[in-house]
Write a protein that binds this DNA or RNA. Structure first.
Length: 556
RNA sequence: UGACCCAUGGUGUAACGGUAGCACUAGUGAUUUUGGUUCAUUCAGUUAAGGUUCGAAUCCUUAUGGGUCAACCA
């Protein structure tokens, strides 16, 4: 798929090309993707991953993977592995540059010492509550801590004692000495280090003081020689502090550039809310196919190509945005249309008996994908007893209904034209069986009948049909903006976001399918074989419906 | 009520002082052994008011609307 959708440059590419023209950093481009290992990656992260790795690819630069692991309370190795797997699955490589902010703890400590020596940082004895109180509010200047003017020797002594575990958690912090009157709250003597007696997933119990984000991120960028440090808009107010640290330490000047994060309609994206959905069992796990997580989308049947294509389509800018879920669906349809093998599956079987057909099985050759001649053909068994969809027959057809009706004709895909002769009903009047005749000389590819039925429908031969479970997934929320409602977002969960069809009939070709394989179930939807699927118990997840202009006209 | 940021069709994104374009969505038609695909086509936009300029979506001012910031989270 052609992923270079944008012929024009986005604003970050503008900056980079300008930097290259000016010979900044020798024209070098080096980005990084800096996840915190405290959760699973979602489609929003995919935007950032594609941006960072994509920029490096485009400008012949490099991208580091760096885990931003400065908070031992929430971070775990389990997440590190899933994050790495997801990035690789998306199709990007950080080569040998897998880094951790925790790799730099000693260096960061020395940076802090440097600041103290310059009189730019101090140890504060105020409690968390007091510090918050002293900071005041954005509209009101803050107050300086009584400990702000400790001398350098005392600060140094105290800071080393903090490191040596001489104090309790919360007893002391290291703060930058900047400006308590700044209109930017982040510049009101931000906390640089806090005491935490918590084992770290990589450094164990080596440290009992940990740097804050603002004292770790920019320096990590600088240490790695990152030229363009791309983050989301909410870090915009941190930029003066990012630059302050780099300037006062006199280290490599990485440049922070912010862009607007991805929001998707009918979806929530915050880690907190996704965690809630999992914890409170609204979904079956982080990889539930309804989740916007990469593992969820993968299980749903989304391909890396589709996701990369999607991130190209959404663009990069600085204004808040909500992307229509339809665009994500468009991206996956466009990819799958070209690549998915077409097969036949009956969701809601209606038995059809071909009264004039021999009691035999005929193997018909049917194309695997009309969009791809290379995809070849497969043999599909045909016989006297078949299943078609209940919805493909109407005794009293509505206007413009092209499918099978009493005395009407349709073509069976890749097979013959059939004519409905007789309807069998149960005691409730429900149609349970159709007796049809087939037109002998109407065989697909060698049709001599001259008949032109208006519709072609899919079917499955009864004796060779295999049972399968179909999981029909739909959007998780009933409103486009669940985040932006009076009520809690969970009040808008779509009760029908998963409908399981236990007894679908599929053609025998699918017997040997493997988890992750994807198909188009003709005239219905794209499906992917679920992780839990076995040849004895086939399970398919609906990725996305086919467009359905008939359904649309019916809905009106 | 402070600082910073943002504002182009329903959605997203271009136009870098000189013809407002592209994609999605929605509509219509053609093609089609998938009511799919493909193709053609239609609807629809510069937040407002001033100013600078021969000329403003673009520059300036003000207003309006929206976002971010007051974790020892990232």
């Amino acid at each position: 798929m052609d992923e270079s959708v944008n012929k024009t440059l986005n604003f970050i590419e503008d900056i980079i090309e300008e930097d290259i023209r000016n010979g900044k950093h020798g024209g070098r481009v080096h980005t990084r993707f800096p996840p915190e290992p405290n959760g699973y990656l979602h489609i929003g992260h995919a935007k950032s991953i594609c941006l960072n790795f994509g920029l490096a690819l485009k400008y012949k630069g490099k991208t580091n993977l760096r885990f931003d692991d400065t908070n031992p309370v929430t971070e775990e190795t389990e997440y590190v592995e899933s994050i790495k797997q997801d990035i690789q699955w998306l199709g990007f490589s950080w080569e040998d540059r897998e880094f951790y902010a925790s790799d730099y703890f000693e260096q960061l400590f020395q940076f802090a010492v440097q600041l103290i020596k310059k009189g730019k940082a101090y140890v504060d004895d105020l409690s968390a509550e007091e510090i918050a109180k002293y900071k005041k509010s954005p509209t009101e200047a803050g107050l300086e801590s009584p400990f702000r003017n400790r001398n350098i020797e005392e600060n140094l002594d105290l800071f080393f004692k903090m490191r040596d575990g001489k104090f309790q958690e919360g007893e002391k912090v290291l703060r930058a000495k900047i400006d308590m009157g700044s209109p930017n709250m982040h510049m009101r003597d931000p906390i640089l280090y806090r005491i935490l007696y918590k084992p770290h997933h990589r450094t164990g119990t080596e440290w009992c003081i940990y740097p804050m984000y603002d004292f770790a991120h920019g320096q990590s960028d600088s240490i790695e020689g990152i030229t363009h440090s791309i983050c989301t808009l909410e870090f915009e107010n941190h930029r003066p502090l990012y630059n302050w640290c780099i300037e006062n330490l006199g280290i490599f000047p990485s440049q922070q550039i912010e862009f607007a994060r991805l929001n998707l309609s009918y979806t929530v994206m915050s880690k907190r809310k996704l965690l809630q959905l999992v914890r409170e069992n609204y979904v079956e796990g982080w990889d539930d196919p309804r989740m916007p997580t990469l593992c969820g989308l993968r299980r749903r049947g989304y391909t890396p190509e589709a996701i990369r294509h999607f991130t190209n389509l959404v663009g990069i800018a600085r204004r808040d945005n909500v992307i229509d879920l339809a665009l994500l669906e468009f991206a996956v349809r466009e990819d799958l249309n070209k690549r998915a093998t077409r097969v036949m599956a009956i969701f809601d079987p209606l038995k059809v008996i071909l009264t004039n057909y021999e009691n035999q099985i005929e193997q018909l050759e049917i194309e695997n994908n009309p969009e791809d001649p290379e995809a070849g053909k497969r043999l599909v068994p045909f016989g006297k007893v078949l299943y078609i969809e209940q919805e493909d027959f109407m005794e009293n057809p509505v206007d413009k209904y092209f499918r099978l009706t009493k005395d009407g004709m349709v073509r069976l895909k890749g097979a013959y034209i059939v004519k409905c002769e007789e309807i069998i009903k149960d005691n409730n009047g429900k149609v349970i069986e159709l007796h049809c005749s087939y037109i002998q000389n109407s065989k697909s590819g060698q049709d001599q009948s001259g008949l032109k039925p208006k519709a072609t429908i899919h079917w499955v031969e009864e004796s060779n049909a295999i049972n399968a479970e179909l999981r029909l997934y739909d959007r998780l929320f009933t409103v486009p903006d669940p985040d932006d409602q009076e009520l809690d977002f969970k009040a808008f969960i779509n009760k029908d976001s998963l409908v399981k069809i236990k007894a679908a009939k599929v053609e025998p070709f699918l017997k040997s399918t493997k988890p992750g394989n994807f198909y188009q179930f003709i005239r219905k939807a794209y499906f992917a074989t679920d992780l839990d699927s076995t040849s004895e118990n086939l399970i398919f997840n609906r990725t996305v419906n086919l467009k359905d202009s008939w359904q649309k006209t019916q809905d009106k």
